[in-house]
């Protein structure tokens, strides 16, 4: 009687479920393809020179030492400035503002900043710092990275503080602790692992960030710890070297790419281990 319909429905079912398996395969294949190419080309170029020698002119031997230093320095500055600001703002959203209109606005704007194009961040810092100072500098680079760090930390801090059971806050309040003490010694402490996760994710996010550094920190061929001068960074060097026609620059670009990816993946895995289980 309805056998034909029955078979047709089963076939469609099989067909679409097969498609969704293929979709998952599609995603995994690209991941494998990208990581495979990266490790293959990156490991071939890996040597101790990378960490000891400066970025070379074309045709000469060299490493990425100045770029690594620049990346580490600017990321450290950005995290040092962005973490407390993000932590306080996130604390306001979760502990004080919660349902106020201001908190709603801040949340909205923060989520926009979280996904806003990073190149626009670069333009912003260029306008307010580079133009005012009259030259490119590591300060400007770090500032543009700070603008990227803040929204990440705000979002995770708020989420993690909201996971802290209200009973803890109430217990502390019942003991007579003022609210600031409750936040600092009860809720922050309870959410510590989650907040650290947010900072790690922020570091992972900025360590590969290129666009805003292009016209804030620019680049520098030499070993430089002067934050008031242009500074080299791994992503910018990768961009410059990969777009060039020189074979040995390409090799260094691959090595740099491997370093960045290894850093980012390690940070995301550690962050995932630390992250508390979500409630739902």
């Amino acid at each position: 009687m309805n056998k034909a319909l029955y078979i047709r429905r089963k076939l469609w079912n099989g067909f679409f479920l097969l498609l969704s398996v293929l979709a998952a395969g599609f995603g995994l294949i690209w991941l494998g393809f990208i990581l495979g190419a990266l490790f293959y080309n990156g490991f071939a170029a890996l040597s101790s020179k990378l960490f000891l020698e400066m970025t070379p002119p074309p045709g000469e031997d060299g490493g990425l030492a100045n770029a690594i230093l620049g990346s580490v320095m600017m990321s450290a500055l950005a995290v040092a400035a962005g973490t407390p600001l993000g932590l306080f703002a996130g604390t306001y959203l979760a502990e004080y503002g919660r349902y106020t209109r201001l908190a709603f606005f801040v949340r909205f704007v923060n989520d926009i900043l979280l996904s806003a194009p990073s190149i626009v961040t670069g333009l912003f810092i260029y306008e307010i710092i580079v133009v005012k100072m009259g030259h490119f500098s590591a300060w400007a680079g770090a500032a543009s990275l700070t603008v990227i760090v803040i929204p990440v930390v705000v979002r995770t801090t708020e989420n993690m503080l909201l996971l802290v059971p209200n009973g803890l806050r109430e217990a502390a309040a019942a003991l007579g602790a003022p609210q600031s003490a409750i936040i600092r010694s009860v809720t922050w402490r309870a959410a510590r692992a989650g907040i650290v996760t947010g900072v790690l994710l922020a570091i992972a996010r900025i360590s590969g960030e290129t666009a805003p550094l292009l016209f804030t920190a620019l680049n520098n061929q030499f070993w430089s710890t002067n934050a008031n001068a242009p500074m080299s960074s791994l992503p910018v060097v990768i961009f410059q070297f990969a777009m060039s026609p020189y074979e040995d620059w390409h090799r260094l670009a691959w090595a740099g790419a491997l370093l960045i990816t290894a850093t980012v993946l390690t940070l995301s895995i550690v962050a995932r281990i630390l992250q508390p289980k979500r409630s739902h």
Binding site: L31, M243, H250, W254, V264, L265, S268
Partner: peptide, 19 residues
Amino acid sequence: AIELLAGIPSIIYGIWGLF
């Protein structure tokens, strides 16, 4: 694994895409 795709920095996609 799928979420790792979002974690890979865009410059890595760039160099992989180009070469």
